[in-house]
Simulated scan of single mutants.
Amino acid sequence: MVYLTLFLCFVTSILITPLIKKLAIKIGATDQPNSRKVHQKVMPRLGGLAIYFSFLVGYLILRPVSDDYNVFAILLGGLIVIITGVLDDIIELSPKLKLLGQLVAAGIVVIYGGIQVEYITLPFGGELNFGYLSIPITIIWIVGITNAINLIDGLDGLAAGVSSISLITISGMAIFKGDIFVMSIGLILLGSTLGFLLYNFYPAKIFMGDSGALFLGYMISVLSLLGFKNVTVISFIVPIIILGVPISDTLFAIIRRIVNKQSISAPDKSHLHHCLLNLGYSHRKTVLMIYGMSAMFGLVAVIFSMATMWVSFIVVLALLLAIEIIVEKIGLVGKEYRPILNMLQGIRMK
């Protein structure tokens, strides 16, 4: 039944997206080209509505329930995020208002829904209880991942594809863990996203806009919490690895803006996809390369979750070195980050 619902979400998204495209054009929810953006013509956005409506269709058909999670809080938070994204696609909200919407959604999930990272079990015995910090830590995770997906939404099909790969990994690991709820939500969201991706892959006919990027980021952040909260240090790292591409790109963006004395929300053209384009790769090849990186992170996450502690440590070390090599080769950071790269190179030499 779950896989049939995934297919129905896929078909629903295919059927709804052209209607959303017409709506976006009619109400003026379009993305204008400028010096910072890659596209050269006016593009309809609001595509996130197609993903959201298809997801709702799948949820109403499957009606997944859980004794451990507050499903209503998750859906209510998703509604607030999608409303925030739709408003931004239409009238372009200020960064503060967008952040407020995300904080409200995260607060509902964490405080009302009770979904929190309360503790982690240490590898050599004992527990690390977060206590009162569990609420802000969980909220920061949700808001951080939500914005990470939003930040990589810079090329046709990029955010939708990376999100799909993350959802495949999360849903697959949920199947092995026997978590039917996370698997069900992940798969119906995957079907909805893949249907939209048919219209969003290069050359795109419609953008997902903030409505799509924020909703996908929010849902992925919550699903990763549901699947891996209150576990060991090893398992706690798994969702970080799964979302390695958007997290690392966001981390470097924050460092870049702090060093350059810019606002953290200030846009620039130094993200991973921009750097690959600057190296001469085509739009399509750049997106496919980042898909490959995301798939690599997903595979590493699966291996990491099944390995012993020492093997997991070696996997993380190898992953850090791979990130350092990629960052240095493609020029994701400049000379102002040399101390960071030197530190990573020192680890590689050892």
Rank of each mutant, 00 (worst) to 15 (best):
M1N: 15
C9D: 04
S13N: 06
I20H: 02
A24T: 09
K26I: 01
Q32M: 11
S35Q: 12
S35H: 11
R36N: 09
K37S: 10
Q40T: 15
M43D: 09
G47E: 07
L49S: 11
L49H: 04
L49F: 12
F55T: 02
V57W: 00
L60V: 10
R63I: 13
V65N: 09
S66K: 00
D67L: 12
V71W: 04
V81K: 05
T84E: 05
G85Q: 05
L87Y: 11
L87F: 12
D88H: 01
I90Q: 02
E92R: 09
S94K: 14
S94V: 01
K98A: 04
L99T: 03
L100E: 06
Q102K: 10
L103H: 00
A105T: 01
A105E: 01
A106I: 04
I108G: 10
V109D: 11
G114S: 10
V117L: 12
E118R: 06
Y119A: 09
T121K: 13
P123Q: 07
G125I: 14
G125E: 00
L128H: 04
L128C: 14
N129P: 08
F130I: 15
L133D: 15
S134N: 13
I137W: 11
I140M: 08
I140W: 02
G144R: 06
D153V: 01
D153H: 09
D153N: 12
G154K: 04
G157A: 05
S163E: 10
S166D: 03
S166A: 14
I168E: 09
I170D: 13
I170F: 06
G172L: 15
G172A: 15
G172I: 11
M173A: 12
G178I: 09
F181K: 02
L187N: 12
G191A: 04
G191P: 05
S192Q: 10
G195S: 14
F196M: 05
L197V: 03
L197F: 01
L197W: 07
N200L: 00
P203G: 01
A204C: 03
K205T: 06
I206M: 07
I206P: 08
F207E: 08
M208R: 02
S211F: 01
S211D: 13
L214N: 15
V222G: 08
S224R: 10
L225F: 07
G227V: 08
K229D: 15
V231K: 14
I242Q: 08
I242L: 11
I242C: 13
V245W: 03
T250Q: 05
T250F: 03
L251Q: 01
L251S: 13
I255H: 02
R256D: 07
R256Q: 09
V259M: 00
V259H: 08
N260K: 06
K261W: 10
Q262T: 02
A266N: 08
L272C: 08
L276R: 03
N278R: 13
V287C: 07
S294I: 03
G298L: 05
V300P: 02
V302I: 15
W310Y: 11
I314K: 14
V316R: 00
L317K: 08
L317R: 15
A318W: 06
A318D: 06
E324I: 06
V327G: 02
E328S: 15
K329C: 11
I330H: 04
L332F: 02
V333R: 03
G334Y: 05
G334F: 00
E336T: 14
R338G: 03
L341D: 13
L344F: 14
G346A: 14
R348V: 11
M349H: 13
